[in-house]
Design a protein around this nucleic acid. Structure first.
Lengths: 190, 190
DNA sequence: TTCATTATAACGACTGGTCTATATAGAGTC
DNA sequence: GACTCTATATAGACCAGTCGTTATAATGAA
């Protein structure tokens, strides 16, 4: 049995992924999690911002771990990246093209407004970039190139998720999977 | 002297680019535009959703035009794309890393909720993709490849803008400019 | 008793949206 | 020109409802 606190965190994470910061109300979180409303401010005395900051940080770290695991399973870096993005495409299709960007919406909504959330989103993106860069580094890419490519990969994924959700089709993700694979294969590693 | 209706549209466009759908209130639009509140529902009887749908459509078309103009100025497709993205990076830096994604935020917030806004965002992205694809086509890229690359370019740009706004630095955009240039130069066009 | 947790209700601020009254401007008629 | 008539546009008070937040009371186990 999960604790009340964990129930709140998980319900918030799910709502956040689909709706973003503003569309997700505390009442909805209470309702969805089944947690008593009184508990919300008991466990999260900083209110909505504190709760969501913690969700962002947790989600960011969890996904960074998933990226690392996935990339470690395939040796060739181009194949590994391509495979990860295609897995992502499947996940998005399974969510009826409504999920897949747990950080992006909040980042766009709040990065200029809340320092706390801005920092949380930043940490998430830095962790993801580090995971990709590390894989490229150990595959023989030069350090700056690995960093640049990691930025490019994350950017393309986040952008393609926006397109996929808007068009309600996983095609954009599949297309960038193909092209990023080509980019990693066709260009020299240094 | 701009008309009241145009004042409302422009103020909404500016607010939308920085804040997204939910954070932009009608009262704020009224205040920022200097227009009387009574005029808002006179010109936009469909309310907030209708007003913002029109802003999205207008903005999408205007930017599509800017893409076309910019790409037409440089013959080599890789150089043209790279130059456009670097111009974008400058624009974002000039906005203190707060602007640059007039569609993305709304797309993420509302694509699953409002069909009307979803369609509007879709049209914008399709126009942009068409502008890039056309340039690649006339440069000798095969049709499907041109489409795929156009998706990849737009995805990378939108994603890099998220990163740039979150990190408050234009570096991500500059990095993808470099890598997309490499992708277009290093791979065969068919 | 003690303490962590949950319940309840209310707060003030704000939201998008509606309403009615008023002002303005131009056309047509005398 | 002066007059009405009419559609367009402005003005802002007002509504019901929701938001995040808080204060306080009740509960229950150790």
């Amino acid at each position: 049995m999960r604790s009340t606190r964990d129930n709140i965190l998980q319900a918030t994470a799910e709502l956040l992924e689909r709706q973003g910061y503003f569309a997700t109300g505390l009442n909805q979180i209470v309702e969805e999690s089944g947690a008593p409303k009184g508990s919300l401010y008991y466990y999260f005395p900083d209110g909505k911002e504190g709760l969501i900051a913690e969700v962002i940080i947790r989600t960011g770290r969890e996904i960074a771990g998933r990226i690392r695991v996935h990339l470690a399973e395939i040796e060739d870096p181009a194949d590994a990246v391509q495979s990860f993005i295609l897995a992502m495409a499947r996940y998005i299709q399974d969510s009826s093209c409504r999920g897949g960007a747990p950080i992006a919406t909040v980042a766009l909504e709040m990065a200029a407004t809340s320092d706390r959330l801005s920092v949380a989103c930043q940490e998430a993106y830095d962790l993801w970039q580090g995971a990709f860069a590390e894989k490229l580094l150990t595959s023989g890419f030069a350090p700056e190139r690995a960093q640049r490519l990691a930025t490019c990969i994350i950017s393309a994924i986040e952008g393609a998720i926006i397109l996929s959700r808007t068009k309600r089709s996983a095609a954009p993700l599949e297309q960038i999977a193909y092209e990023l694979g080509a980019l990693l294969k066709a260009t020299p590693r240094h």
